[in-house]
Design a protein around this nucleic acid. Structure first.
Lengths: 222, 222
DNA sequence: TCGTTAATGCACTAACTGGTTACTTTTTAG
DNA sequence: CTAAAAAGTAACCAGTTAGTGCATTAACGA
């Protein structure tokens, strides 16, 4: 049943045949299951047995490929960061007018958090552990640099075009763009109680996005 | 009920007998230890034995007073909310000019998160559990209402005085004030890596507070 | 076809975990 | 002074947990 890949042996260096054993596929299934389990219960609350079961893999495989529960978490977290940073790069904001580019980034950030709630939960978990896993990741640092410079470019272009005021710190702006979406979504459950409205209702979400775009635009306006 | 005060001592107002057994004190020690342990490791990661040890109490006492680990968590969380809402009410913002009042609230929120980091972690934990504990708390809802109306009053006063624009939703404003501080602080560890600067350095904190006040002021400005 | 290597599965464990039972000691009402 | 209630303790339990040892099976190069 695990023989999946219809990949008939093609040319090239790695002629893929249908395999009953497929390390890559098993690894991928484990990572996917782990992402969901870690996101749902945090690093401490996640159960290795549950991950193995969800991945339709043997627990032994987890330790074979990822060494430990923490090793698995680290890989999951690293992938999550690479995924969002990659998606951001694909936005191609340099082709847009500064205002449009900024709005698009705010929109993207919001949509990404909304569609990938596990990213938020993983980051929360990692901060509970004082970023001990992320610290070890070199790749994340490289991606982050590109991300910060992306926002700086938009800002600089906007200032040059006279549509943004000067002196806005790109890092602070970055943090703020993330914050106004992240906070709303990560605290959607307690927030819905405290503010006595369903923060996840369709129009509530739309209203918040509009508010966030407005907040950022006013922040950089001349 | 458990009020133990000077029942026996009669006349001498402060003639508290040193007690070797003190239910209230033990409860308080347990709650304090629990707050720290839950904040540090989350609900799932916290260990009941550790809480008992930190509180210099027997584990049995925890179950005696709080029924279960989750019951203890709920009480800790409830107290945390009551504490922050009480502190907010004490700000007495109604006596200040609208702009001052708003700035003071932004400042307070930031300082409170900074001085009580466990509040943030507890809220994060609770959201991981979809607010199942907070849902049961009536007292929190009452306090929350007062809190929201406080911001609404400031906003209304500002509009009337012509210093704030009309049409800003007090709930969205509230969320935003919390967000720009909360996000920065809860993600201070991963943030320090991603942005390659020490977000907790004294001047970084001051700069962020200034930026946040600016953000909110621009948001409500006419 | 065969031998080596990588992938997989099963059964196990040592340490832990939340929660409890049975008991002792202190406080306090009458 | 006494009896009962409240406060406190230690040992224990049953179920879990991350992590392993070892046998087995498939893939693949020669």
């Amino acid at each position: 049943m695990e023989l999946v890949a219809e990949k008939t042996s093609g040319g090239g260096s790695s002629a893929r045949k249908p395999r009953t054993r497929d390390a890559e596929a098993t690894k991928a299934r484990i990572l996917d299951a782990a992402k969901r389990e870690f996101a749902k219960n945090g690093l401490g609350g996640a159960r290795v047995d549950v991950i193995a079961e969800k991945a339709r893999a043997n627990k032994r495989m987890i330790y074979h490929y990822f060494e430990s529960k923490e090793g698995l978490f680290q890989t999951v977290l690293e992938n999550a960061y690479v995924d969002i940073r990659t998606a951001e790069q694909k936005l191609n904001l340099d082709h847009l007018a500064p205002k449009e580019a900024l709005e698009r980034l705010v929109r993207f950030t919001w949509d990404y958090y909304l569609k990938n709630p596990e990213f938020i939960t993983l980051v929360n978990s990692e901060n509970l552990h004082r970023a001990k896993h992320l610290k070890k990741s070199e790749i994340v640092k490289v991606y982050s640099r590109k991300f910060v410079s992306m926002v700086k470019t938009i800002l600089d272009r906007g200032v040059a075009a006279g549509v943004f005021r000067d002196g806005v710190d790109p890092v602070q702006l970055n943090i703020t763009i993330a914050a106004i979406g992240y906070y709303y979504l990560t605290n959607r459950f307690t927030g819905s109680i405290v503010f006595e409205r369903d923060l996840l209702a369709k129009d509530a979400l739309e209203e918040r996005l509009r508010f966030n775009i407005d907040t950022i635009m006013r922040l950089v306006a001349t």
